[in-house]
Amino acid sequence: MTKLEKEEILLKGEITNHLNSIEYNDVSNRIFSLIKNYLIEVKVDSSGWNRLFIDPKDGRYWELFYSNSELQGGGAPTLKYLLREEAIIKYDLI
């Protein structure tokens, strides 16, 4: 598993449909690995779809969301860096 690099601010996954099955690209699979094995979940928003994580190495906040709500499961994942102030406001952190 590759950890997040300091210069990374956005990981946008993609999916493709092949004969009635969905295939995730390498970026999507990396996101799934990061949220399962590395990042620490902090909070889920009121919709239940967006989740806030923190990088244990550098303390940066990361938001997981799915930008294709018209697709089953929301489509491919996106992991976006949030400034601390953005995370506090958006996720009502104390």
Rank of each mutant, 00 (worst) to 15 (best):
A87L: 02
G73D: 07
G48K: 09
S46V: 07
L34M: 14
L11W: 01
E8F: 01
V42C: 04
W62M: 13
L39W: 07
I15G: 02
E14A: 09
H18I: 10
S33H: 08
N20V: 03
T2G: 04
N17R: 07
E23F: 01
L79A: 03
L52T: 10
E5A: 11
L64P: 05
R51G: 00
K3Y: 00
S33W: 04
E7Y: 06
R30K: 14
D55M: 07
L4M: 04
Y81K: 02
V27Y: 01
N37D: 15
R30E: 11
I15D: 02
I89E: 15
E5Y: 02
F32R: 09
E41H: 04
Q72F: 07
W62R: 12
R51E: 11
K43C: 03
G74N: 07
E23L: 07
N50D: 13
L4H: 00
L11S: 02
T16L: 07
H18K: 07
G73C: 06
I9T: 09
A76T: 01
K3V: 02
S46D: 14
I94P: 15
D55A: 06
F65L: 13
E41M: 14
P56C: 14
L93C: 06
E41D: 11
F65H: 06
L71Q: 09
S67G: 12
D45N: 15
N50R: 14
Q72P: 06
Y81L: 10
E85V: 09
I54W: 02
T2F: 01
K43N: 09
H18P: 00
A87E: 02
K43D: 10
I15H: 00
R51Q: 12
I9W: 00
N68V: 04
M1F: 13
W49H: 10
E41L: 14
E86Q: 15
K90R: 15
V27E: 05
I35T: 11
R84Y: 00
R51A: 04
S47R: 12
V42A: 02
I88A: 13
L11F: 09
I89C: 10
N29F: 02
S67W: 10
I54S: 11
E14N: 11
I15L: 11
T16K: 14
S46A: 10
L39C: 11
M1W: 08
K36I: 12
I88D: 11
